[in-house]
Design a binder for these strands. Structure first.
Length: 215
DNA sequence: CCAGACGTTGTT
DNA sequence: GTCTGG
DNA sequence: CCAGACGTTGTT
DNA sequence: GTCTGG
């Protein structure tokens, strides 16, 4: 899945890629270890043709359990989940990240952290939904390469579908689903990183230093 | 109608 | 073991 | 996601 | 708060 990610939050790059009409007053510094409950940028569109850049807290809370934050929503079953359905139909967003972390496990303990990113796309928007000031990232089954590390991965939206993904007038489930085809098998890259990333207080760029070869 | 579950991950 | 904070 | 704490009551 | 099962 996707429980930590990298966001360098470079406004310049985000503006080049999305050209948002509306931007938050709050700037976010680079963060090589974004964890649930932290603020992060999202791209959304509440009015036709008006792309917005906003900040949201990562993780949905339910009214009946405000302590627990759901960092992810399973895309396969999202229409059957009352907590997520309406956000999926009416409040989709893109989360501009620069890669994420995954922990390879044997039995119980996390053994090795990996940084997963795209050589092709430095800014890698992933699919999210939002409600008020909260955001959660959609997941799907991992592709062949990444399944060596973990069985889930974030949902990627191809650039050609970005506009439609953000379009709130598109509410037909089949049409929405067609916007998020499975990621190409070789699209993402990964290499192991140090266990410094395990502690969410660690934030520096050194967290993505490779400690081994690409998978 | 009320009672009770409800969201993820990994692991069992 | 389970919950909370980051 | 992992790290790290992990107790009660009533009251502000 | 809202949905489902009984």
């Amino acid at each position: 899945m996707c429980g930590r990610f990298v966001a360098n939050n470079e406004l310049e790059t985000i503006k080049e890629v999305f050209n948002p009409k509306i931007a938050p007053s709050l700037a976010l510094g680079e963060n090589y270890n974004v964890s649930p409950s932290q603020n992060t940028f999202v791209i959304n569109k509440q009015e036709a043709a008006v792309i917005e850049l906003n900040t949201k807290v990562w993780g949905f809370t339910a009214t009946w359990d405000t302590k627990r934050r759901l960092a992810n929503a399973r895309s396969e079953s999202i229409l059957q989940k009352a907590s997520f359905k309406d956000s999926y139909l009416y409040r989709r967003c893109l989360v501009p990240i620069n890669g994420y972390y995954e922990w390879f496990r044997v039995n119980e303990k996390p053994t090795q952290a990996y940084f997963i990113y795209s050589k092709k796309m430095k800014l890698l928007p992933v699919a999210g939904i939002y409600l008020d000031d909260e955001m959660t990232i959609l997941t799907t089954s991992a592709n062949a390469r990444l399944s060596a590390i973990h069985d889930r991965m974030p949902v990627l939206v191809p650039p050609r579908n970005w506009e439609s993904w953000l379009d709130q007038s598109i509410t037909e489930p089949g049409q929405i689903q067609s916007l998020i085809p499975s990621a190409p098998l070789d699209f993402l890259d990964a290499y192991p990183v140090s266990s410094s990333v395990n502690n969410s207080r660690s934030k520096g760029k050194n967290l993505i230093d490779p400690i081994g070869p690409e998978i």
